[in-house]
């Protein structure tokens, strides 16, 4: 029976190890999903960010870029794009801005979360700089214009004529005040 006992123990160890690996795999799905999104543009996550070399604009195509601002549930700020739509040539670098105002009587911190549709277009929208890279703080009754600099890749598929870029504004004041750090900078830069 001892041989059987050893056989059982080995098998159990292997299976337990398998279970632990799958538990880890559950967590590994989080970064894997990000990679997957980057490749497929799933969910309209913008992954191309940072400085870019200047390029010749492709003036043969006009892309309509539509801007949307959304307030998440209890976010009382006034928040809207300064322009609803702009017409852009692929390769052309364009500056845009969102207006934000804190109408309450207290200082608040906000985080804007971008999203793009159609999802296939996400990987062709390159953000050189964006207010969504950082958290935004406004004192009571203060307002500001938040800039956004972007380029549309010339490789954008021919059937896409309109790209919608939305920002959802989240109130993160309570989370910050309880000492919870949202995330580190490296993570934020992928937004």
């Amino acid at each position: 029976m001892d041989a059987l006992g050893r056989k059982n123990r080995r098998l159990v160890l292997q299976l337990v190890l398998g279970g632990i690996l799958m538990f880890g795999f559950g967590f590994a799905l989080v970064p894997l999903y990000d990679v997957f999104c980057r490749i497929t543009g799933l969910n309209g996550k913008i992954t191309n960010t940072g400085p870019i070399a200047a390029e010749e604009a492709d003036t043969s195509r006009d892309i309509r870029v539509q801007f949307i601002g959304i307030n998440n549930e209890a976010m009382p700020w006034e928040f809207r794009p300064t322009l609803n739509t702009v017409s852009v040539n692929p390769g052309e670098m364009r500056q845009m801005a969102y207006f934000a105002r804190n109408p309450t009587s207290a200082r608040m911190v906000a985080q804007a979360i971008p999203s793009v549709t159609p999802a296939e277009a996400a990987q062709y929208l390159h953000k050189v700089s964006c207010f969504c890279f950082d958290q935004q703080a406004l004192d009571a009754d203060e307002d500001m214009e938040m800039p956004l600099l972007f380029v549309i890749d010339k490789k954008l598929p021919a059937d896409i004529h309109t790209i919608t870029l939305s920002y959802t504004l989240f109130d993160i004041t309570p989370r910050l005040s309880t000492g919870q750090i949202i995330k580190d900078d490296t993570q934020r830069s992928t937004l």
């Binding site: 799905l29 989080v30 969910n43 998440n72 993160i172 989370r175 919870q180 995330k183 993570q187 992928t190």
Partner: peptide
């Protein structure tokens, strides 16, 4: 205070559904 599924912190509610 993590943000796996919370969009406000860079997470994704759709990720929950995938997992």
């Amino acid at each position: 205070g993590t943000s796996f599924f919370n969009a406000a912190g860079g997470g994704d509610p759709v990720l929950f559904q995938h997992v």
